[in-house]
Design a protein around this nucleic acid. Structure first.
Lengths: 126, 126
DNA sequence: ATCTATACACACCTTGAGGTAACTGACGTG
DNA sequence: CACGTCAGTTACCTCAAGGTGTGTATAGAT
């Protein structure tokens, strides 16, 4: 049914899996979403305000990971006090769009995600 | 850019987020994939063999969660020794298809996920 | 001299997912 | 009566993500 899965090398599968796991962590998608909504580069402290509930430490961590993955760009302006701006890369924007389409599908089918709606066949045939 | 995000209630967003986080955990997608490939109900021990590396405990845990979410159906045949079969629900199949399309997109763009490919603008304008 | 703002770094702690290994219950088999 | 099978359960441990709280460099403003 998913022939393409078998046409992947193990390395491709591994890397894709890593990316999914990193992106599906607690904060990355929120951050990408905030950056996308802003439509313009955001400073560190703006992100800290808009990504509700995140701590400074985790925001820096997550941003570094997103940067390494090529999803955001970090621009440092050597001023005092320092100024750093973050913005989405085209890849980040594209990834977000892919995820959003999945998200939309889930929201549309939210009522189905419930075991009580699943037909139970418990042992009728046994 | 993602207008539909703002047309969601907080509750919808929260539930969708929970589902994503659960589904993107270490094992659920593998299990769904194995069940899908099998094309037929699988016994517990068949899953244990085919989902490489998973332990009994985690397999049961994960299957229970998938069952609660309405993604798999558990059928118990009251025999001795016991026989239990797991199969995908239509919803599970559909979810897997959505995720696979995301997966495919990621694999196709795997080479782009690398910070070295991102254009760096480090402070040229400062 | 003190205070403030910015974007962190560092040390510490909590929490939960996941791993490991042993045990269970019911029954048919030798 | 011991043994193996199946689908778990239970107790215990580990490890890393994430949370909390503080420290730091710099220079302009008061």
């Amino acid at each position: 049914m998913f022939d393409f899965c078998n046409s992947m090398t193990d390395e491709q599968d591994g890397r894709a899996r890593e990316l999914i796991e990193r992106a599906a962590a607690k904060w990355p998608l929120r951050i990408l979403h905030v950056l996308s909504d802003a439509g313009a580069p955001l400073r560190f402290s703006r992100l800290l305000e808009r990504v509700e509930g995140i701590s400074q430490k985790v925001l820096t961590q997550t941003l570094r990971t997103l940067e390494r993955d090529g999803l955001v760009i970090r621009t440092l302006y050597p001023q005092v006090p320092p100024r750093v701006e973050y913005e989405l890369t085209p890849l980040g924007r594209d990834l977000l769009m892919q995820v959003v389409s999945l998200w939309r599908w889930i929201v549309e089918h939210l009522d189905d995600f419930d075991a009580r709606k699943a037909v139970k066949l418990t042992a009728a045939r046994a």
